[in-house]
Amino acid sequence: MKLLDQARALLAQDAGADRVVPPTGFTARLTVLTSAAMAFLTIFALALSLASGRLATTWGEELARESTLRISAPADQMDAQTAAALRVLEQTPGVASARALSVEEQQALLEPWFGPDLPVESLPVPQLIAVIEGPEGYDSEGLRLRLQAEVPGAVLDEHTRWRRPLAAAASRLKLLGWVSILLIGGATAGMVTLAANAALAANAQVIAVLRLVGATDGYIARAFVRRFTMRTLIGAGAGTLLGVVALFIMPGGEAAGGFLTGLRFQGWHWVLPMIVPPLAALVAFVATELAARRVLGGLA
């Protein structure tokens, strides 16, 4: 509540408080420039984070947990081995369902290669069993061992499993993006604190005069806080704009056929960059307020 009041007082027009601190060209430009750079980096970290998030999600869904069991056996053992395999699968924890493909289905699968007229029944085509994994997944090593013992002709083919480490990597990348954003925020706070300390030190005489004529610490702090907040807001605004434009001219992800994803924001995510400048301003506000309170508290 107190913070809210301070923020309101900060935004209220008070030309007097702004004028009491002399304008300082160099640090001002530096603050604007640095916050612009920080905002630009934040946009990319954000884009990276969201893109890896999308990647992790799509890949995770496609892993959609389907594997295939292929049984090659002499024709007279085929039915027995298929039944045995199905039994094993039913008993395996983490397998949601297992179903032997019918002759028609197998024929449909082979059609692109051999044409529609192939008599599948008369060929030694292996029997396929579609295995759907439950949400918790199954222990593929254990399953393989059991199958080896009970159904010697079975080969477990987990065709999407290789993507799993990639999906995990994408999740990590997403985390890394968020950590980067936090670090950038921290660096912004540090930079603003240093700039504010420098400004406070450079204006020691101004502060002494203001104290002498009865200015409260709050009034003096406000003059500095308002400046640094506005500079950061302006800088971060410019940086965000540049970052968004840069993302906009990046190629979208469609070309890669949905396997990879574009770095661009998608859908409502375009709203997120707009939060960056106010957030940077808030960081600057808190950092300068704390720096000013600390410096002023130490003065007579």
Binding site: P22, Q205, A208, R211, L212, G218
Partner: peptide
């Protein structure tokens, strides 16, 4: 510190080396 600031509004001080806001 705020009380002191308020009291200063009722005490006019002229220093030997008077300082101003030079800008």
């Amino acid at each position: 510190r705020d009380d002191v600031a308020m009291a200063r509004r009722r005490i006019g001080v002229v220093h030997q080396d008077c300082q101003f806001l030079d800008h």
